[in-house]
Design a protein around this nucleic acid. Structure first.
Lengths: 222, 222
DNA sequence: TCAAAAGTGTTGTGTGTACACCCATGT
DNA sequence: ACATGGGTGTACACACAACACTTTTGA
């Protein structure tokens, strides 16, 4: 029997904070790449579903739970890990930055959110992986309600639009944005206004709590 | 050190034959699923790129080479293989059904093309994998020149349209189809006419030999 | 001359895009 | 009263969808 590769899962977890798209990184406590930042992940157990492994690793390494996850791509370059052959099945995750407190595990000396638009030096091929994940997110935003993973249950149209703008890194026209979103019928008004310093805004929710693709294409070129 | 899963690659290879979309299957010579049909694939070697493994397995098991391949998805259900934990990284492949001769390897008692629209009973979770692959193909046909993997270098517009129709399983309007294809500027006329029994047809080629996505969306609802 | 596939335009409908002003509130 | 973000409509250009007849060839 020939030798087997090791198999890991790694997770690119996005969230929105302020006007920025953030990625969750952990600081490695042990070699290789000791003290470098990396995306969270770890070995798949022998009897564990791949997505369960991703959920478990996220929880263990960073204390983050309750996340939308989807499989991204499998990276298997023979030399991507100096310790030997490691094939990694990568996931994209989305959360509304919220209730949980980040907490570094025993494997990590630190955990933190970093801007997806200005990343530190990263371990392994993790930079490529994050770029791949960002492409996926940008792609799917155009034909699915995937943003719901990044927003709270209730939100205003301006918040929704800001989410699109941050992810696409592009300004959108307010009137056209609203017209399209309504035409897609993916959100609905709920009673109540969001109060801020200025005029209160109508509150909305997604019609569905599940992430799925539209029947109708939506490519915002506003 | 905990026990490691095994890692395989499997390939869903499509081709067009007559008016049908075909998938390449091999008949298993050994248990588990002895005498069932399955998609070609096998174990990844310890120092081998994933896509090289896919190319190698295709060649070894079926004698098919010179194929467009892209990674599809990784299936890792702990019980998907009765022998133990096997994680499989699946690929979609496209070929123009052409020069090579199918040839069963030592592991397979037979190799054959089957209609993607009426498959036999398949080993493991291979039915799910093929359905997944077909969805990918249908999706990508709308925003990439991926059909070029299924066609010869030179072809007529009717052949191109038939390829779309077979994959989408839907009739398209000839005039609208031509208008859109020309607008996309992905094919160019070449000198020469294709002669058949009837009126000869203009011959075309793809502008690019590489598969890539359009700048412009193309969703044929003709 | 007939059978079969190749080739060709127009019109109505809907969607994308550009663009500017008034409204409601808290300070 | 003013600063700030919330909220609204219209016109033009372009893409999509529906639709039928003529042309070219081999047999």
């Amino acid at each position: 029997m020939e030798q087997k590769p090791s198999v890991t899962v790694d997770i690119v977890l996005f969230t929105l904070m302020g006007d920025d798209l953030k990625v969750l990184l952990v600081k490695r406590k042990y070699p290789p790449f000791k003290d470098s930042w990396a995306i969270p992940g770890g070995f798949v157990k022998i009897d564990e579903q791949l997505d369960e492994a991703a959920i478990r690793e996220l929880k263990e390494e960073t204390n983050v739970s309750n996340v939308y996850l989807e499989q991204l791509y499998t990276f298997g370059e023979p030399k991507r890990d100096p310790r030997g052959r490691v094939i990694t099945i990568c996931y994209v995750g989305l959360v509304h930055h919220e209730n949980f407190k980040l907490k570094a595990s025993t494997d990590a000396s630190d955990v933190s959110w970093y801007s997806a638009y200005s990343l530190p030096k990263l371990a392994f091929d993790h930079k490529d992986i994050i770029e791949f994940a960002l492409k996926r997110l940008r792609g799917k935003i155009g034909y699915s309600n995937i943003v719901l993973g990044l927003l709270p249950e209730e939100f205003t149209l301006s918040e929704l639009q800001r989410a699109y703008e941050i992810i696409l890194n592009k300004q959108l026209d307010k009137r056209n944005f609203r017209k399209k979103i309504f035409a897609l019928e993916i959100i609905k008004e709920v009673a109540g206004k969001m109060k801020g310093k200025f005029r209160p805004a109508q509150v909305y929710r997604f019609v569905s709590k599940e992430i799925g693709t539209f029947k109708v294409e939506f490519r915002p070129n506003f």
